[in-house]
Computed example of a mutant assay.
Amino acid sequence: MKTKKIVITGGPGTGKSSIIRMLEAQGHECLHEISRQVTLEAQKQGIDQLFLDKPLLFSEKLLEGRIVQHKEADMLPATTVFIDRGIPDVLAYMEYFKTSYPSDFIEACKNHLYDKIFILPPWPEIYVSDNERYESFNESRRISSYLVETYKNYGYTPIEVPKIPVRERSEFILKTIDE
C-alpha cells in the first residue's frame, strides 16, 4: 500500500511546527522542517546565514533534504506521513527572492509528488520572530502567496487551514485528508 504524503506548509510563523508536534504527540508519523538543520550545519562551518550568503547552495541542500524526506516517508510503517514543507516550497522561496535555479529543481517537483497540501495562512496574532526566522510578518504574507501559486503551478489544490487553536487545526487536517 502506498504511503500518503501530506504536506503542511505556509509562510514563516504560521504554526506549521506546532501542528506537526501536535500530530506527532497524537501518534502520527511526521517529518520535521529541515531548513533550521541546514542553517545550523552551515553555522558550524562558519557561514552565519547560508540562505543570505549562498542562496542557491542553501536551496540545493534543502532540495536534497526534502527529496530524502520524500523517500523516507515511503519507508515508514505508517499509511500517512505528515511533512513540514514540501519540495515545491524550495522553488516558491527562490521565486520570492528572485533567485534563478536549475531545471533539476523543477524535475524534483514533478518526480516527487504529494497527496494533499495544507497551507496555513499568515496570522499576525501567532507570528513570532526568532533567531532563525528573520522574515517580517509582511514578508511572511508575501511568501505565503508564492507558496500557494507554486503548488497550484504543479497541479495541487492547497487546502487552507482555518485560524483556530492548534488542536482544532490538527483535527481539521485529519478530517480533511480523505475528502
Score class of each variant (00 low, 15 high):
Gln37Cys: 10
Ile19Tyr: 00
Leu52Ala: 15
Phe105Val: 12
Gly11Tyr: 00
His70Trp: 14
Tyr156Phe: 09
Ile67Tyr: 02
Val90Phe: 03
Ile159Asn: 11
Ser136Phe: 06
Asp89Thr: 12
Lys2Gly: 04
Ile117Ala: 10
Arg133Thr: 07
Ser140Cys: 08
Val128Asp: 11
Pro121Cys: 03
Val38Ser: 04
Lys61Val: 01
Leu174Tyr: 07
Gly10Lys: 03
Met1Gln: 11
Ser59Val: 05
Arg169Met: 09
Asn111Ala: 01
Tyr127Ala: 13
Thr80Val: 11
Gln49Val: 13
Asp48Glu: 10
Val68Thr: 14
Gln43Trp: 04
Pro158Ala: 12
Ile126Thr: 11
Leu63Cys: 02
Tyr156Lys: 15
Glu179Gly: 04
Glu139Ile: 12
Asp84Glu: 13
Arg36His: 01
Thr150Ile: 10
Arg85Leu: 06
Gln45Phe: 00
Phe82Trp: 09
Ser129Gly: 10
Pro158Asn: 14
Pro12Glu: 03
Ser170Tyr: 00
Lys71Ser: 06
Phe105Asn: 13
Leu147Ile: 15
Pro165Val: 10
Gln69Asp: 14
Val148Arg: 13
Pro158Tyr: 03
Lys110Tyr: 08
Leu174His: 06
Tyr127Ile: 14
Asp84Lys: 05
Asn153Met: 09
Leu147Gln: 13
Phe82His: 05
Ile143Gly: 05
Ser59Trp: 04
Met22Cys: 11
Cys30Arg: 07
Ser17Trp: 00
Lys163Ala: 12
Glu135Trp: 00
Ile119Gln: 05
Ile6Asp: 03
Ile67Trp: 01
Ala108Pro: 07
Arg85Asn: 15
His32Pro: 07
Met94Trp: 02
Gly15Phe: 00
Glu135Cys: 10
His70Met: 13
Thr9Gly: 05
Ile6Cys: 07
Arg85Cys: 11
Lys54Tyr: 14
Ile87Glu: 03
Leu52Cys: 11
Gly65Thr: 01
Ala92His: 06
Ala25Gly: 10
